[in-house]
Amino acid sequence: MRDVNYNFGYLDERTKRMIRRAILKAVAIPGYQVPFGSREMPLPYGWGTGGIQVTASVIGPNDVLKVIDQGADDTVNAVNIRRFFQRTTGVTTTQRTADATLIQTRHRIPETPLTERQTIIYQVPVPEPLQRLEPRELETRRMHALAEYGLMHVKLYEDIARYGHVAATYDYPVMVNGRYLMAPSPIPKFDNPKMSMNPALQLFGAGREKRIYAVPPYTKVESLAFDDHPFEVQRWTAACALCGSRSSFLDEIVTDDRGGRMFVCSDTDYCGSRQSGKEEAA
């Protein structure tokens, strides 16, 4: 039930309009980080305030919302954010990827392919892909203006020279529509290929850094690579111990203090529906 002491979606209408205008600009300029007047939210910065503000500005009474953190619906932060929207909008929530119209996520893209009727909203801690190489915003802004991304290429090249491969495994930088270098948020690079030509609209909110950006549907998203060092995603020798999947992202679970390990899907909905599918078949 919606708590009527708060406006629908918590934010006041003027804030929503400001964010909505920023979202429209973000969609029109794929991969460009639109500065916005991020508000203090009742959750701390760094805990999803950007994603929450985007979701709060987009969500309507007919939406079905799914919230995941690390691929799971039942981790405490995902539960907390879902409860926040249940309380302030009263919308239906779901754990099933296929049933959701809006998916707010931290650090994963669901394994179940997204569709045209869905919008995925990423929580972004550090929207600027160049920040670790150049902390000054005046400088990184100029680089984006000129599409001058040599700094990043040099960094990746140095990785290869030193380690034989690119030493980035999550938040792996991507190029959007051949123009803007973009941080995909700390999703594992395993998820990067899912971003490209995705039928769903992808929105990104960074509350603390006050940026919103977007990848429209059916837009090319390339992970940076070199001809002789193509982009590769993680592979596991094990299969999921619960559903047997060999194509999903697996989390390692420490099972005892003698080095025992098992691997299970990070996407709990995907894993769960595969398990129940098996039971039905049996």
């Binding site: 701390p44 690390q70 030493a167 395993f190």
Partner: peptide, 28 residues
């Protein structure tokens, strides 16, 4: 707010990112 939030967000689960790093370190 910004500083406290971001420093303390390290308490949130990061096991997907950490899994990726684990795999990288093993590979290296």
């Amino acid at each position: 707010l910004e500083a406290s939030g971001f420093v303390q967000h390290l308490k949130l689960p990061h096991y997907v990112d950490f899994q990726s790093e684990l795999e990288l370190v093993r590979k290296m």
